[in-house]
């Protein structure tokens, strides 16, 4: 696989959005610990290079179906910290109007469609969006994200089969973060190399270090280019580690401590920071950026948190349009 060296601007853009994702998680985790948030907090800590690196390979008209650990992709596609906070805290003004939580909202203008909790269900739907691109000859590409856990669901097979047999502009990112809730990969599959599944569909399958921003970006760029010229889908397995529990209620005691320590060394945010330094970005400039992003996120979450809840009338607004 070829390797793309990202430009300094690209690296800075990536790092900014990885920080946003990390700080947003930290802010939500803090609220959770204070019992000031409804529902679960599903952090993406450890996954920032994947969500940011993949989505940066896309252009304006392209479309993503992120899963619940891909906030970096939302930021890359232009969602502001304030919009994210309003959505995640489902205050008045949230895109789901309070009818649904976490990252389940859709923002079609930015090419973002949310997921349902049954993540496997989104693969056929995302394939359908890719089918629409092919029918309309738009050249736009669809990226659908799923985890090692979700990819065991039968609908994933049906979606990949449809996408491959119809040669659709579709990319499935399997974020292999080692655990499906508490179940390790060893108990989920007899072949832990998820990209091998591509062989069954006659499409390219690649495995990439999901903590390596440039590697993720390169693999996705190749897949996007392939899809854009009409050569069909790609399956990308991005190997990462879910550094926290399934959600914040889950202490993750079933994960061996050594495994966490090993992956801490590969923290994608720190790795990308080191890449910036290597690219002659000054430490001082990086620290300033980090301070700014933390302030931006904290201010956005604080702002959203004081907004009123959704109007009660939203509950009975009706199920049809």
């Amino acid at each position: 696989m070829f390797y793309i060296q990202m430009t300094t601007d690209q690296l800075l853009f990536a790092y900014t959005n990885m920080l946003r994702a990390r700080e947003f998680d930290n802010a939500l985790i803090n609220l959770y610990r204070q019992s000031k948030i409804v529902g679960g907090v599903y952090s993406q800590i450890g996954n920032e290079a994947t969500s940011v690196g993949t989505s940066m390979a896309l252009g304006d008209g392209d479309i993503i179906f992120p899963m619940h650990r891909d906030n970096g992709a939302h930021f890359v596609r232009g969602m502001t910290a304030q919009e994210m906070a309003i959505n995640f805290l489902f205050r008045k003004g949230a895109m789901t109007r309070g009818t649904d939580g976490t990252g389940h909202f859709a923002d079609p203008k930015r090419g973002i469609y949310g997921n349902v909790s049954h993540l496997g269900a989104m693969v056929p739907v995302a394939a359908g969006v890719a089918l629409a691109q092919k029918m309309k000859k738009t050249k736009n590409v669809v990226i659908n994200y799923i985890g090692d856990g979700g990819s065991s669901v039968g609908e994933v097979h049906e979606g990949l089969m449809m996408a491959s047999v119809m040669n659709l502009p579709f990319i499935l990112i399997i974020e292999n973060n080692q655990y499906a809730y508490s179940t390790p990969v060893a108990h989920q599959t007899h072949n832990p190399k998820y990209s091998d599944r591509a062989i069954g569909y006659g499409i390219p399958g690649v495995t990439v270090d999901g903590t390596d921003l440039e590697a993720v970006f390169a693999a996705t760029s190749t897949a996007v280019e392939r899809a854009r010229v009409g050569n069909g889908p790609t399956l990308i397995e991005s190997v990462t580690m879910r550094m926290r529990g399934h959600a914040e209620h889950d202490g993750g005691e079933y994960v061996p401590k050594e495994q966490i320590i090993e992956w801490q060394k590969k923290d994608p945010v720190l790795k990308t920071r080191a890449l910036l330094l290597k690219n002659k970005i000054k430490e001082q400039e990086i620290v300033l950026l980090e301070t700014q992003i933390k302030q931006e996120i904290d201010a956005a979450v604080a702002y959203a948190n004081q907004l009123p809840p959704p109007d009660p009338s939203e509950a009975r607004r009706g199920v049809f349009i």
């Binding site: 269900a121 693969v123 056929p124 739907v125 995302a126 394939a127 359908g128 969006v129 890719a130 089918l131 629409a132 029918m135 039968g154 609908e155 049906e158 979606g159 089969m161 449809m162």
Partner: peptide, 10 residues
């Protein structure tokens, strides 16, 4: 599921 999902997506 593939058929209905594709229809929904389109």
């Amino acid at each position: 599921s593939g058929i209905i999902g594709a229809a929904i997506g389109a």
